[in-house]
Write a protein that binds this DNA or RNA. Structure first.
Lengths: 144, 144
DNA sequence: CAAATAAAAGACTTTTTTATCTTTTATTAA
DNA sequence: TTAATAAAAGATAAAAAAGTCTTTTATTTG
């Protein structure tokens, strides 16, 4: 469904958001630990998220990453996915046809269209705030 | 969604089924052409499909691959996907948690469960015959 | 039976994805 | 203002996925 990179990115964002809810800025080490990801690789991912203005980064002592509460209410999971994996999951044909459309449909065109629409709806309507609260409340998890 | 290998496999099966509907056995060259896949790689994929008894293979002159009409009415897309990609798409957590469950849910557990169920239903209920007819009738395509 | 045909098997190669390690840059606080 | 801290940047490395090439095995038909 998502690349490993994207999975880590989503989890990292949710974790950062949940910590930002209690005014805590988190470092790469902390994130990697919280989401069980390789530390250096997580650093690379954070660079992308930061460049895409999905997280705020602060260098130096007491630095780290954060997402202001106002921002996390605006940012959708779809933005994170687009930053990491592009919009393949939102657009492209399930069987890999380059020009799959109503005029040139693959054998599963309409069925996949429905599934893609559901995925898109989920990712476009769910904000980081929406998922961060469940984590902060101990109702959901990012590990195991 | 699916690996490239799996996409080719699904398309190959649909093509073979559609040709079997008119009593035509097809060779690797023919398949690769019909689904726009690399020929040698397609050969490798056919080995897997053949070992998994999804297609029948015949060596020698006038050999090739076929799927008897009775079989294509039984075989579901899910079998093809399982043979190539395993059952990750049917089972595994969207965020990559190894033990994602009601007791240890990822933040998108229930939402993904619904999407996974839809995908599973589609793949488990659609037979090769179901999709082969549309192709044979010129209503759907495997190229472009 | 021999030649031709076509898939199976095996050994590689290339590309992409995932991951690591080192150096640089920015920030802070003593 | 310097030492410590933490992210950014850059250069590699390892693993997995995608793809190729060569040889072998099975089958068929003249």
């Amino acid at each position: 469904m998502f690349s490993k990179t994207c999975e880590y990115a989503i989890k990292a964002c949710i974790y950062i958001a949940s910590q930002s809810l209690v005014q805590k800025r988190v470092g790469i080490k902390d994130i990697a630990q919280a989401i069980e990801s390789p530390e250096a690789f997580t650093g690379k991912i954070m660079q992308v998220l930061s460049k895409n203005h999905i997280v705020d980064s602060v260098k130096g002592p007491h630095g780290g990453f954060e997402i202001p509460e106002s921002a996390m209410k605006e940012k959708r999971l779809a933005e994170v996915v687009r930053a990491m994996d592009g919009d393949d999951i939102f657009k492209s044909c399930g069987l890999g046809l380059k020009e799959c459309s109503g005029a040139n449909p693959c054998p599963l065109h309409s069925q996949f269209a429905k599934i893609r629409a559901d995925i898109t709806k989920l990712l476009e309507t769910t904000s980081l705030y929406d998922v961060a609260t469940g984590l902060a409340d101990g109702l959901t998890f990012l590990k195991r």
